[in-house]
Design a protein around this nucleic acid. Structure first.
Length: 466
RNA sequence: GCCCCCAUCGUCUAGUGGCCCAGGACGCCGGCCUCUCACGUCGGUAACGUCGGUUCGAAUCCGUCUGGGGGCGCCA
């Protein structure tokens, strides 16, 4: 049997870190078993669903490179089918009409709260004759849930979880206006879509009981559940849109790589021994639901950043440039010229060693892209005064006279100068660095000279010598 | 209030009765490398929440308490 997983977000806001991880786990598991990963947008809440949010979710998944199979299912479009199932349950005696108004229910909840009782629908219309219905009130359809015994969920992550049926009330399946509730829609859609494994946040664990009852009432096979612990914010509370959580798009803007994000999210709650760096390819091979932890975890930006640095250092130069170029262009306010593009590419080996995000990478690459005379930072200016300038003036001819322009040749020339003049390497290297990059820190000098090329190097030295 | 889940360094975790006076990673602190900054590397800091069982032996099994989280909508 084909294993089918799904990610089913509601488009009421952006895709945050928790949702992204849920999507990742579903994707990973389906790829691991050679199954199918589907996407369903749960847009039945018309008041809160927006096209912008749907777009943000789609964009987020694409950025993370989590590709789904088949067409996206929009839940709202399947309303008629959901209502049909509700009526079928009514016909089979597994559901009934209830005539309380929302106001009445709110009042009842209020009284239960005041009396210190648990808050649930008491089932007033469960066995009442519909003939007693108050005139003019449109009924909802409620599930006739088992009143005794217990409902058991065999959860792939949480283990066997059981609850007494007295704890569960008769939930609404179809609203008075004829629209289905979430509880009904998920079950019908998951069933119709052939979903075999539901991997979702822990906050749905109690929903699994009620959904199981619908599966049982309809005589459908219950899928396997895997409720993964939530990701908490630094304060330990649930991460949500109104709780400091950022949309996945924000992380893109901060210069994180999708591969690093996937790796970080994977390690948040899933482990394979004590390895931290796991490629997406390997994680597809290794991912098992049973290895998901049961404890909630906190989001740690420092670790994500470190991991991102790892992926940048290990990245392919040309690809890194492609990823960083938009950031560079934004900072520059203009596109790169071909020579500048070439310099950054040649200098990438040294640049990527020093950056933890694409933003940092772009910042560090800027000096390769500036037109002469290049801007000079304050710290670098201090290096270019007095003795510093003298060294540059003395060195310029030595570099200009180089037969071959290479890292090795440049280094030999500088070392010869240092030896002859008896100064320390640092005393001359720093002014040189300031002249070439306009900064007090940069990748290795000779590497910079090689990447800059002879003409640009000599030009910048001349600018600084003035 | 009721129901459910969880509990190893600050954080992510390894650990499934003896190999653990608990290992790795991030962070933090120090050393080395060195033309700067990084990278790398070496070392340090730091945890089995409590109490009680079971056992020759418990981070690992059971219970209690405490703490944290989630849910209890004609939201999803």
């Amino acid at each position: 049997m084909t294993i089918v997983t799904r990610f089913a977000p509601s488009p009421t806001g952006f895709l945050h870190i928790g949702g992204a991880r849920t999507a990742l786990f579903n994707w990973l598991y389906s790829r691991h078993v050679g199954g199918v990963f589907r996407l369903r947008i749960e847009d039945t809440d018309r008041a809160r669903s927006t096209p912008e949010a749907t777009q943000a979710i789609l964009d987020g998944l694409r950025w993370l490179e989590l590709d789904w199979d088949g067409e996206v299912v929009y839940q709202f479009a399947r309303m008629a089918r959901h209502a049909e199932v509700a009526r079928e349950m009514l016909a089979k005696g597994h559901a009934y009409h209830a005539y309380e108004t929302p106001d009445e229910l709110a009042r009842m909840r209020e009284e239960q709260k005041k009396a210190g009782k648990s808050i649930r629908y008491e089932g007033h219309w469960r066995d009442r004759d519909p003939k007693d219905a108050p005139p003019g009130v449109k009924p909802v359809i409620r599930l006739k849930a088992p009143a005794t015994g217990e409902t058991v969920v065999e959860d792939l992550v949480q283990g066997t979880v059981r609850v007494a049926n007295e704890q569960l009330d008769d939930m609404v399946l179809l609203r008075a206006d004829g629209t289905p509730t979430y509880m009904l829609s998920v079950v019908v859609d998951d069933h119709d879509m052939g979903v075999t494994h539901i991997i979702r946040g822990d906050d749905h664990l109690t929903n699994a009981f009620r959904q199981s009852q619908i599966y049982v009432a309809m005589g459908w096979e219950i899928p396997r559940f895997a409720h993964i612990p939530l990701i908490h914010g630094a304060d330990g509370a649930k991460l949500s849109k109104r709780h400091g959580a950022l949309g996945i798009g924000e992380y893109e803007k901060m210069g994180f790589l999708p591969a690093a994000m996937r790796n970080y999210l994977l390690r948040l709650g899933w482990g394979h021994g004590d390895v931290d760096i796991i490629s997406t390819e390997d994680s597809v091979k290794l991912f098992e639901i049973g290895d998901i932890g049961r404890a909630p975890s906190r989001f740690d930006l420092a670790k994500l950043t470190n991991m991102n640095g790892h992926y940048i250092r290990a990245g392919d130069d040309a690809n890194l440039l492609a990823c960083a170029e938009p950031f560079i262009v934004q900072k520059l306010g203009r596109p790169l010229t071909a020579p500048q593009h070439g310099r950054v590419l040649r200098g990438m080996a040294g640049l990527k060693q020093r950056a933890k995000t694409l933003v940092e990478l772009a910042d560090a690459a800027l000096f390769y892209c500036h037109e002469r005379p290049i801007p000079v930072a304050d710290k670098a200016k201090a290096l270019l005064g007095g003795v510093g300038r003298e060294h540059i003036r003395a060195l310029a001819p030595a570099f200009a006279g180089l037969g071959e322009w290479s890292e090795g040749a440049a280094e030999a020339a500088l070392r010869a100068y240092v030896e002859k003049s008896g100064v320390k390497m640092g005393e001359v290297a720093q002014p040189l660095r300031a002249a070439l990059t306009g900064q007090a820190q940069s990748p290795g000098l000779f590497e910079v000279m090689a990447a800059l090329g002879r003409e640009e190097t000599l030009g910048r030295l001349a600018d600084a010598a003035k």
